[in-house]
Design a protein around this nucleic acid. Sequence first.
RNA 1: CGGGGUGUGGUGUAACGGCUAACAUGCCUCUUUUGGGAAGAGGUGACUCAGGGUUCGAAUCCCUGCACCCCGACCA
Length: 417
Amino acid sequence: MKQSHLFTKTKKEAPADEVAKNAELLIKAGFINKEMAGVYSYLPLGLRVINKIQNIIREEMNAIGGQEVTLTALQEKATWEPTNQWDDAEVDVWFKTKLKNETELGLAVTHEAAMTKMLKSFVESYRDLPVNIYQFQTKFRNETRAKSGIMRTREFIMKDLYSFSKDEAEHNEFYEKAKEAYKNVFKRAGIGHLTYLTFASGGMFSKFSHEFQTITSAGEDIIYVDESKGIAINKEVYNDEVIANLGLSKETLVENRAVEVGNIFTLATRFSDALNLKYKTETGEEKSVFMGSYGIGPGRLMGTVVEVLSDDKGIIWPESIAPFKVHILELGDDMEVKTTANALYATLQSKGIEVMYDDRTGMSAGEKFADADLIGIPYRVVISPRSLKDGGYEVKKRTEGKGKIVNIDELTEILNG
RNA sequence: CGGGGUGUGGUGUAACGGCUAACAUGCCUCUUUUGGGAAGAGGUGACUCAGGGUUCGAAUCCCUGCACCCCGACCA
């Protein structure tokens, strides 16, 4: 993409009402736009990142047998009444609305019940199980306090997968696979080294759950990390019994602030009992389907990456989720520079490399450098009278201080690697 | 939901109850520049969140509403 074509612009100053680093940088660089408290739109650059993240998640979910669907965001009252979750005393984050005929509807807070209900049309026999279904869908939660930029919003996309198994043993098998898939997601998104499988309370759904917590001061949770074992305990269930059950000891646990980037938990038969999702076993017995629920918020994951991987100049995207792989900067209005830059842009694109080309004219070099650092694309290639005189292209990684001059073959080799 | 705070050009800030609401940045025009947010010149842009009140006089004080931020509680 040519940068002159991009309708968004970088800003020198972040809006005064944003304090969170993720929102400051993402707004300054033109990835997101704030519509109101806790509600953000994704702009071209931000959407590219979200799509990359979703594709990683999609690949990992498909790899463990997930099937993708999209359920509706509008949900009827009857869906949530069997589990008593339509009640505002039970679930206090509903956005509720009505049809013209006064029928009450809710904007999806989550999809456990809807997915369970939907599956009743398809599951009848043990032969139909197990199935694992997921979606990327908008959730609406009327949070009393949105906060921390895109980390806790009132409208957000969530990947939610629901597993439907014949029994607990089959469920556990999938649950373990899901754990590994989740680890892969966070590793691939560039925050694996800071993310810990964390033992936590199950909230409304079950007694315990597993969270994936990424260490950052921007997080809302306190966790106790055992570095050598690579696991942690959430403060909410941190007690002697839990520590002992997990085979940990207080001495090796270190307190950290962290953000929950993923959460998986066992639902057992809570929803299948309530909504009557049953199947016939081989012996003709009727049994409730055994369920699990697995969530990741791509937007929050994006915010977490920014919180964790950035410096005083801007964002530092991991290659896997960067909006583009390489950023070409053309400096000055020299004709030869322009010709060379255009040719490189065409060449890289023809090789399937995602490239942003800063072809904007009348700008100082410093301004282009500053924008490139802010946007945070992994590789920067400078083309200028100087680089041409030195015989090539100056390539620099966002994480490195100094670049080096290379020729076209060396450059494509670096970018293909 | 409890507590604290803030609303001024697109953005960031300033202005004692008293001059035509100032500065920077952005944006437009021209000239000169081009390796770390260039320089000069000229221009554009705000009924100071909304409504009421106090006052000779309100961006400034008071009330109501709305919006936003932070701490806590909550968090499927």
